[in-house]
Amino acid sequence: MDATQIIKTIPIEHYVILSTILFAIGVTGVLMRRNAIIIFMSIELMLNAATLLLTAFSTYRSDTPGQVFVFFIMVVAAAEVAVGLAIIVMIYRNIKSIDINVLNKLKW
């Protein structure tokens, strides 16, 4: 049995449910947590949910665009995190904290 068939022994619904749960955990993390690095982790979780879904659909349909898309998502996510962490370091230098509640200089 090759890998594709092993993957297909699990029904597609399970992949959809798993990635929806991952996505929901990610969204909850972004909305509830106040630490900038944990917010970034949650965003990574959301991206991974999308990645898993793309890979699963791609395998089930036996075509490639989904899997190619995944590589680009990984690269872009790395770039996003690099810029984000650089900004976090800069903020830490200025205010010695990365709790986003401290960032309340700008409020409506």
């Binding site: 990635s19 959301m46 793309l54 659909f57 989904g66």
Partner: peptide, 8 residues
Amino acid sequence: FGISFIYG
């Protein structure tokens, strides 16, 4: 996430 559903 939306794009992956549309793709699927």
